[in-house]
Simulated assay, not measured.
Amino acid sequence: MSRESDCREDVRRLKKFADEIEQTMDNVQTLCGHATWKGPKSDRFRGEWATHKKSIKDTLATARAEIDKALTRIEKEETEKKKAGTGN
């Protein structure tokens, strides 16, 4: 495999993992809803969870942006390497 195809596979897996994290967060949100869980501990958890959820989503957004930058950089390097190898 080439460096670019390895990177593409890593990107695919990382995006899949990020999607799975988001799906899990949605499941937590559903499970800790007012209809499912009541009382002061549930209210405290929901308040804390909202903060954690925002932090996790922000981190995932940053990670996705960095993943895309890395792939773009690898694609550019591989293109330049191919051009140098053909004498163009």
Rank of each mutant, 00 (worst) to 15 (best):
V28I: 11
V28G: 01
Q29I: 05
T30Y: 12
T30Q: 02
L31C: 08
C32L: 06
C32G: 01
G33A: 07
G33I: 09
A35V: 09
K38E: 00
K41W: 06
K41D: 15
K41V: 14
S42Q: 06
S42I: 04
D43S: 00
R44P: 04
R44T: 14
F45H: 11
F45V: 10
F45S: 08
R46M: 10
G47W: 01
G47N: 03
G47Q: 01
E48V: 01
E48D: 14
E48A: 06
E48P: 07
E48C: 04
W49T: 04
W49Y: 02
A50Q: 12
A50S: 08
A50P: 03
T51R: 15
T51Y: 08
T51M: 08
T51P: 06
H52S: 11
H52K: 13
K53R: 13
K53L: 03
K54T: 05
K54G: 07
S55C: 04
S55F: 14
I56S: 13
I56K: 15
T59N: 12
T59S: 15
T59Q: 10
L60D: 06
A61M: 08
T62W: 15
A63H: 10
A63S: 08
A63P: 07
A65T: 09
I67C: 12
K69V: 04
A70G: 03
L71A: 08
L71P: 00
R73D: 14
R73E: 13
I74Y: 04
I74L: 08
E75D: 00
K76W: 05
E77D: 12
E78N: 05
T79I: 01
T79D: 11
E80G: 02
E80F: 02
